[in-house]
Design a protein around this nucleic acid. Sequence first.
DNA 1: CTGCTGTATCGAAGGCTGTCAACATAGACG
DNA 2: CGTCTATGTTGACAGCCTTCGATACAGCAG
Lengths: 120, 120
Amino acid sequence: MTSVLPVASDPDVAACCSPLARQPLSASAATELAGALKALADPTRLRLLSLIQAHDDGEVCVCDLTAPIALTQPTVSHHLKVLLDAGLVTRSRRGTWAYYRAVPERLASLAAVISTPQPV
Amino acid sequence: MTSVLPVASDPDVAACCSPLARQPLSASAATELAGALKALADPTRLRLLSLIQAHDDGEVCVCDLTAPIALTQPTVSHHLKVLLDAGLVTRSRRGTWAYYRAVPERLASLAAVISTPQPV
DNA sequence: CTGCTGTATCGAAGGCTGTCAACATAGACG
DNA sequence: CGTCTATGTTGACAGCCTTCGATACAGCAG
């Protein structure tokens, strides 16, 4: 997955309304967007992302995630890789531990494509 | 799926930051949110939603959707039902035709949970 | 070098999902 | 009533996804 949301980088589109509503999504753009959303559309991954973001430093190592999620370590690692491949988190290894961090811009970008909120 | 985003109705939460980052998602809340996102995380359904929203009246009948999607009518009907069950579209039958309409509030609500955009 | 701990990968089992053909249903029109 | 058209439902098949146990890899401690 390379450039994921070409439409989101266009300020005009974001300024107006949901890019989804601007014009019919092309098949390839839809596949690309669906890929990113699929990474998000899983209870375990949503909880992982939530745990990471809610943490004090916004940085959590795998060992801190297995317990609250109540799944085996390989499974947690698998989900983190999915989030990593989708660009939703970043990984940085320090010594033995691997620290994961969320990418808020990526989340904001996805949210903007789904629906740019109208000022209430 | 009954009440889908209890957290989104709390203005305090939405006003601050991404509810995802507020506190760790409970397992049930995560499942609920994932269910809504799963409905969105499919290329065909994203295109359908886009076609519906991009249409002049914001209202499209099934017969206008099968051609651009290039799938059989039962498949399109199936996807529309998924979107309907997720509360992302509404259906109104008038005579022989069934007209589908998007629910922007629902999309905005989902987007807000994923990431409430920071003012740039 | 040898063990130990944290993390990633592999292979397999089970369930879920998208798609289709076939059929059922519901209005509209003679 | 009978037929036609638009839509929804059912059953089946193929493919993907989540999860696990087993295993491999990477650093640290001794």
